[in-house]
Amino acid sequence: MADEVKLYGVAGSPFVCRVKIALNLKEIKHEFVVEDLSNKSAHLIKYNPVHKQIPVLVHNGNPVSESLVIVEYIDDAWKGVPVLPQDAHEKARARFWAKFVDDKCIPAVFMAIGSHGQEQAVAEAHDQLQFLENELKDKKFFGGDSINLVDISAVFLAFWLGAAEEALGIKIVTKDKFPNLTKWSDNCINCQAVKDSLPPRDDLVSFFKMRFGKA
């Protein structure tokens, strides 16, 4: 009997995209259930009563919440391309950097976007991004030759950030300052499992114009 897999979310969410990437890497067939975040479904509230947020993965009736938790669950539940390294130390490092992306990088970059590239906010974002730049070194991905948990966690930086920069006419990440991250972004969004998971760029540009655009 085939597994029943449902993913509750919205197409434009980078956190939902993380889960889609993991599902695509493992070639897992699933149903995507689109949520209206202004009128959340009874199913979403039932499956994630604590946060009432997307994404939620439901596997054979069992819900899993929080994007990075879901990605690790997918890695544990299905064989195929691994998302986490097998070595215990490398696995711990991947978890550390994925959490760093969530706790430090994305909030700092979002502040820089929201400030329309204000100098201090951009400088603070640069401070956090420099750690990722140094961690990448000359690797194609954070996972080496293939994407892993860190690459998946940082998909916002690879794709959403560029759409925001285009929408607002600002530049936060430049090739001169962040050559490794710039190259990584191109590699990441051209990885097939990622490419198949991304929303239309034009939709994101429109979203950022609407949310942060100046009157």
Rank of each mutant, 00 (worst) to 15 (best):
I70N: 09
V5H: 12
K46M: 07
V101A: 11
K214V: 09
K183Q: 14
H59S: 06
I54F: 08
D36V: 13
K52C: 08
G61V: 14
D138F: 08
P107V: 02
D102C: 07
G162H: 00
I113E: 04
W78R: 06
H116V: 06
L204I: 00
V69G: 11
L129H: 00
V64T: 09
P82Y: 04
C17T: 15
E119R: 15
V173L: 04
L68S: 09
S153I: 07
A123R: 14
E66W: 00
F207W: 10
I74D: 07
E66D: 06
D36F: 12
A121N: 06
A108F: 00
A193F: 09
S38H: 11
L23M: 04
S67Y: 05
K46G: 00
F32P: 15
H59V: 09
P49A: 07
A22H: 03
L25D: 13
R93L: 13
R201L: 10
M210V: 11
L25R: 14
T182E: 13
E135G: 05
F15Y: 10
A193Y: 07
F110N: 11
S206I: 00
T182L: 10
K177Y: 01
A215T: 03
V173D: 01
I170Q: 04
L136P: 02
R211Q: 09
W78A: 00
S67W: 02
A94D: 10
D196V: 02
K6A: 12
G80H: 14
N39F: 05
S41F: 13
I28E: 06
P82G: 04
S41M: 12
P63W: 05
C17L: 11
A11M: 06
A163P: 11
S146D: 06
N39S: 12
V16S: 07
L149K: 14
R18W: 02
W78D: 03
P14C: 08
K137L: 03
G117F: 03
N134G: 10
S38T: 09
P63V: 14
V173T: 05
K195M: 04
Q128F: 01
W160F: 04
D145Y: 08
N24V: 03
D102K: 10
